[in-house]
Nucleic acid binder design. Structure first.
Length: 275
DNA sequence: CCGACAACCTGTGAGC
DNA sequence: TGCTCACAGGTTGTCG
């Protein structure tokens, strides 16, 4: 479920509900995530105050203070993770691996069937943590533009879609939005990155921003009741132009949309509109 | 430095 | 109904 727009939607939804709250600790039922959950998580969180929530790529960051020390709880939802704000007494289901316990009796519950997600602790603002230190720039920041895309794609022979999905180049563009942005920009996902002109880089950077922004807006429309049910934000109901639509007709030109594999992942595109 | 590939896990749907 | 297979929204680590 987690693409950048969902993590951002999650952050915005949790912000007013968690800011200023104090943690009582953590209850870890199964710490075997991508990396083992810190064994001392319960003690490390007890008494810490949540100062704010931030996002880097698809990482959700909880900024904590306790006494004079600042730390960050880094949460990634992997392929199948979700976070739910529940009453701590609510019975956990099969893949509810851990609860972050709030002093007021609520819990932020992590569910992750595939366990590709992670929960880590870092000192300070977390910038030095290995997971964040070498992360690429934010796609919605002004720094991500045609000039940047053009610069990093020179002498790069790999397909442009793979470059877009490389988190060390730009953080948080997943499979869905790489496909959708390339369609919006009219660019063939197989094109070697270095072959993109400056002008097409401008177009692609713009397409990335508008595609992500629109998805966040759609997610925002469901923020009101996102604490309920499975918390799936509204962007998931958004119509994709190409993703998951192989064999169907392109909305722009009517040709059959294709699905190919790139690095083992599905790429959806229109052979007519994307050159 | 670059790029290809395996690895970590479980669930679901299609086809037989 | 039950088996097997392909595939799924992510990222790191290793190797050539």
């Amino acid at each position: 479920m987690p693409e950048l727009p969902e993590v951002e939607t999650l952050r915005r939804g949790l912000l007013p509900r968690l800011t200023g709250e104090v943690l009582a600790g953590a209850r870890v039922r199964d710490g075997r995530l991508r990396w083992p959950v810190p064994a001392d998580l319960d003690r490390a969180l007890a008494g810490a105050r949540i100062e704010g929530l931030a996002r880097r790529g698809k990482y959700l960051l909880l900024h904590l203070t306790r006494a004079d020390s600042k730390r960050v709880l880094i949460v990634h939802l992997g392929m199948s993770g979700s976070l739910l704000l529940v009453d701590a007494a609510t019975m956990p289901t099969a893949h509810d691996h851990l609860d972050l316990l709030l002093a007021d009796g609520r819990a932020l519950r992590l569910r992750d069937p595939r366990r590709f997600g992670c929960v880590c602790l870092a000192d300070g603002d977390g910038r030095a943590h290995p997971l964040l230190a070498r992360l690429g720039i934010e796609p919605l920041s002004p720094a991500f533009d045609g000039a940047y895309l053009h610069r990093v794609s020179r002498r790069r022979l790999r397909p442009i879609k793979l470059l877009l999905m490389d988190g060390h180049v730009v953080a948080g563009i997943g499979n869905i939005y790489a496909c959708e942005a390339l369609f919006a920009a009219g660019i063939d996902p197989r094109l070697p990155a270095e072959r993109l002109s400056r002008r097409r880089c401008e177009r692609l950077a713009e397409a990335v921003k508008t595609t992500l922004a629109r998805a966040i807006d759609a997610g925002g429309s469901s923020l009101r009741d996102f604490v309920a049910a499975d918390g799936r934000p509204g962007y998931f109901q958004m119509e994709h132009a190409v993703y998951g639509r192989a064999g169907e007709a392109c909305r722009r030109c009517g040709r059959r949309l294709l699905r190919i594999a790139q690095q083992g992942r599905g790429t959806f595109f229109c052979p007519g509109c994307q050159r």
